[in-house]
Design a binder for these strands. Structure first.
Length: 902
RNA sequence: GGGCGGUUAGCUCAGUUGGUUAGAGCGCGUCGUUCACACCGACGAGGUCACUGGUUCGAGUCCAGUACCGCCCACCA
């Protein structure tokens, strides 16, 4: 043992603010977040879901950091070359909207600036927020490798995006086509199906009569009545459809109708898509403004008329309503229809209406020329984007955790439709397609100087940008360097785990899998996948279980929580707040208890360090076990069991349960029992517990470090110098405890749990008898099989339960006096009392007897069952038999007690 | 219309090969300033594990159905 210089005492409470930034700086400056590539070792790699550069991190990011950092630190501590690769997403439409709102405050819009100046303006924002976001991750303790930080518009990613686009286009998987799309009139861009949120809205169903046309263009008194929720679209109607089997309309199929107000002649067509039972069974067909009608129109060669423009204003096709906003036009048209007697009646109706997920504006379905990814076309025989992406999960080459999301993923992937990837925005990856005056279209990774066909130099690049998810969908391979064969790509790909909220499963997870299997397919079945496992975590809701949204004003800033309770407490709270994949409620109570845990840990370490003072200790060795006290063997055995359990839990991604068990061990076993018992021996001058205290604390800190990195590192920095032979310079790079199966000691665990129960029983008797807390009482322990254990721990019992214990034989005579009795296993506890309240004692004993008898009967019944005896494992039967024996003794003892009480 | 999840102590949640008297935190009650910690300690009260049926020697755990809550998907004129 060596002697250390005197050390400054730790403050009595953990103060995160004085610790966190200093510790983080130490980690980062020493380069611990950067992996050392070692071809002899299996790497561990996670790509961070890149937060949008639109602003601050929210609780979801905080949860992600907690989950990812826990896994990352755990792997790093096992010696795996570990890379957590961070990034930020340019978030095309979201960021453009934010900047547009900024401009609006200045009274201008993006068109006033022009594209180039607008984009420069966004870059200014990006530069500011990227570093802010990185700092926020740092404050939460994220041990990501910031030297590799990737932005989704970095030149490297541009290259990956263009290469992917060019290859997909070459293989015919990207095409340009006129289709019905979701159009946001506010954002003035096309949206993919996923970017539309459907909201139930109370609306009206308008019944309108369309007169039949007679010979020679004369309207007849007969008519067909249609029902519509969008009367303003009638100006673009080019047909009316009925079900071919609908007898009511049989004769009218093929006849012509006169479109009210407009006067256009439109045909009645028969189409299976029409449900006879809905409305009148006749539907007006507006191929220009409704996806279903588009389909019907295609089948019947109906003209497509677009009467509402991209700003949701009526155009020249709308005749008298030209220039009116669509909503205004609806009112005007309804008025006119009513005036002219075409409006039959109106019904209340509830239906869901699509809204832009970014700005909330009602989306307009319109036909538009856009770029698409064909997810079904085969790029190789039998291989399509969607087909491969489903297959890889079905074959288990990618594991989804929790498993139930596998079904959700596959259901979506099996029903996926082509993906609209072009956006009429200015911010994003501009589509790498150039048009020449000669009509030639060039698709290239590098900006072409001239037209490859005519040689002309007046090329015009497609003005649209790509859906944000096109670039983030490349993350796992592009972030590592693809299409270049970089060292990172060779070593870290496929990445190990991926992690995200289940709400972006389709947006992101699905796209990453599709793209990776296409771009990386040369690597073969095992090597092409973007990640081996994907974890889906749940959403964090507020204390009332409401979704956190800006409009509700219930959004919590994780950094505010971290500042208030400590980053460790924040991490522990969100990590243990729910099982993987389950939503959780966010409450101050949970944060408070996590903070309390950090403080408890802090103080337990303070105690250990105080007792160690200037001493160093050696780690306990299993060969010396026989010389250890019972509680030493017990805590070491418990520790080893914890290591086995936590290892299994972390492997199974049950981070919440792992955290809970570590807390339980440290607080209950270590603090409440081991530390308390150590006090007696230390006070008596026995220094042997010091090594155990230091070792168990050390192991506990290691195990907890991935979840609560700051407080554990800070404490360990103080502890490490007391442990001889410790070589790790910091906890973050110290070895994670692994069970060597050397300390397991079933006898010690049984003996200690008996001792603990006896102590509890003594304290219980004291409390029930309302004995003054300070009064020391005589207690006789009529002991059976655990006499030795009770004897060796009697000093601790005396100290922690405020009694003078005497361990005597089971049949020993008690001295005269009033006693309170209790039984634990085969030990009878006799507490010598100043006086006894007979009635209260009887009531207590009777209650206990009832419980014990019930338990005994259950056991007897179970054990009497021959089926059980023959089929249940011997271990279970034996365990039950010994419990029964104990329970019988207890019941007898209680009966005897009650007898003598009379 | 299809699919998924939840329903366990007053509250928030654990409980992953079915196994002896179902756990934690918070809250509640009583007691406590024993030199790590009152952001603490001791003791206690509190649950027919939504309901019904089934499988099993044994079900919170597996199966079927019901109810309520929530979510996702779908071309709901």
């Amino acid at each position: 043992m060596t002697t250390l210089p005197a050390r400054k005492e730790l403050p009595p409470a953990y103060e995160p603010a004085t610790v966190e930034s200093r510790i983080y700086r130490m980690w980062e400056e020493r380069g611990y977040f950067q992996p050392r590539i070692d071809l002899e070792r299996e790497p561990y790699c996670i790509i961070m879901p890149p937060p949008n550069v639109t602003g601050e991190l929210h609780l979801g990011h905080g949860l992600e950091d907690a989950i990812t950092d826990t896994l990352v630190r755990w792997h790093r501590m096992q010696g795996d070359p570990t890379l957590w690769l961070p990034g930020e997403d340019h978030a095309g439409i979201a960021t453009q909207n934010v900047i547009e709102r900024e401009l609006a405050k200045e009274g201008i819009d993006r068109h006033d600036l022009g594209r180039e100046a607008f984009v420069e303006r966004v870059w200014m924002w990006v530069r500011k927020y990227r570093s802010r976001i990185a700092d926020q991750h740092r404050q939460l303790g994220a041990s990501a490798d910031w030297t590799r930080n990737v932005f989704t518009l970095d030149p490297q990613i541009v290259k990956a995006v263009r290469t992917t686009f060019v290859n997909l286009h070459r293989d015919g998987l990207i095409y340009r086509g006129l289709r019905m799309i979701n159009w946001c009139p506010r954002c003035e861009t096309a949206l993919s199906d996923l970017e539309v949120d459907y909201v139930e809205e109370a609306a009206k169903l308008y019944y309108i009569r369309y007169p039949m046309m007679g010979e020679g263009g004369m309207p007849l008194p007969d008519y067909v009545m249609v029902a519509t929720t969008r009367p303003e679209t009638m100006v673009a109607d080019t047909g009316v459809a009925v079900n071919p089997a609908d007898e009511r309309y049989e004769e009218k199929i093929g006849r012509m109708l006169s479109l009210p107000i407009i006067g256009r002649e439109i045909p009645v067509v028969a189409d299976d898509a029409v449900k006879p039972e809905f409305g009148t069974g006749a539907v007006k067909v507006t191929p220009g403004h409704d996806p279903n009608d588009w389909e019907i129109g295609q089948r019947h060669n109906l003209e497509v008329i677009v009467a509402i423009d991209k700003q949701a204003v009526m155009n020249e096709e709308a005749g008298p309503y030209e220039g009116m906003p669509a909503e205004e036009a609806r009112e005007a048209i309804l008025r006119d229809l009513e005036d002219e007697g075409y409006l039959d009646h109106v019904e209340d109706y509830t239906h869901s209406v699509g809204h832009c997920s970014r700005c909330g504006t009602t989306v307009q379905p319109i036909p538009s020329e856009q770029w698409w990814v064909d997810v079904h076309k085969e790029y190789e025989p039998g291989r399509s984007l969607a087909g491969e992406a489903a297959k890889v999960v079905r074959e288990g080459r990618i594991t989804i955790v929790p498993q139930r999301f596998e079904k959700v993923y596959l259901n979506w992937m099996d029903n996926i439709r082509d993906w609209c990837i072009s956006r009429q925005l200015w911010w994003g990856h501009q589509i790498p397609v150039w048009y020449c005056e000669c009509g030639e279209l060039t698709v290239a990774t590098e900006d072409p100087e001239s037209c490859p066909k005519c040689g002309g130099s007046s090329l015009r690049q497609d003005e649209d940008v790509l859906d944000t998810w096109f670039s983030s969908g490349l993350a796992p391979h592009a972030d590592l360097g693809w299409p270049d064969e970089t060292e990172d790509l060779r070593y870290f790909y496929p990445t190990s785990d991926m992690q995200m909220g289940y709400d972006i499963m389709f947006f992101w997870c699905a796209r990453m899998i599709m793209f990776a299997l296409y771009n990386m397919r040369e690597r073969g079945p095992e090597g092409e996948v973007p990640f081996l496992t994907v974890l889906f975590h749940g959403l964090i809701r507020d204390a009332n279980n409401d979704k956190m949204t800006k409009s509700r004003g219930n959004v919590v800033d994780p950094l505010v929580s971290a500042a208030q309770y400590g980053a460790d407490a924040f991490r522990f709270a969100v990590l243990t707040g729910a099982a993987m994949g389950a939503d959780q409620r966010y409450s101050d109570e949970r944060l408070t208890s996590a903070r309390n845990f950090a403080d408890k840990l802090w103080n337990s370490a303070r105690y250990v360090l105080l007792k160690l003072s200037v001493r160093t200790v050696q780690r306990p060795h299993p060969l010396d076990r026989e010389s250890y006290a019972l509680e030493d063997r017990w805590i070491l055995s418990r520790l080893e069991q914890l290591q086995v359990d936590v290892d299994a839990l972390l492997r199974g991604y049950q981070l919440n349960e792992a955290g809970r068990q570590i807390e339980e061990f440290l607080w209950n076993d270590f603090c409440d029992w081991y530390i308390e018992m150590s006090k007696v021996r230390l006070q008596a001058g026995d220094e042997r517990p010091l090594a155990i205290l230091a070792h168990v604390l050390d192991q506990g800190l290691r195990m907890l470090h991935p979840i609560m990195p700051f407080v554990t590192e800070e404490l360990w920095q103080s502890l490490r110098e007391h442990i001889e032979g410790e070589t790790a310079p910091a906890l973050i790079v110290a070895w994670y405890p692994k069970s060597g199966a050397n300390w397991k000691d079933v006898a010690a665990e049984e003996a200690m749990s008996h001792v603990i129960e006896v102590n509890r029983a003594i304290r219980n008797l004291r409390a029930e008898k309302k004995v003054e807390a300070g009064t020391r009482l005589q207690v006789y322990l009529r002991a059976g099989s655990q006499a030795e254990a009770l004897r060796t721990t009697s000093g601790a019992t005396a100290f922690t339960s405020r009694v003078e214990p005497q361990v005597v034989s089971a049949d020993a005579q008690l001295p005269a006096g009033e006693f309170a009795f209790a039984r634990v296993g085969d030990t009878e506890i006799a507490l010598l009392l100043p006086q006894v309240d007979v009635a209260a004692e009887r009531a207590r004993l009777e209650k206990e007897l009832a419980e014990a008898s019930a338990h005994m009967e259950r056991l007897e019944k179970q054990l009497a069952n021959e089926q059980f005896r023959s089929k249940a494992p011997a271990q279970v039967v034996e365990g039950m038999e010994s419990t029964l024996a104990e329970t019988r003794t207890k019941v007898e003892g209680l009966r005897e007690r009650l007898g003598t009480l009379a």
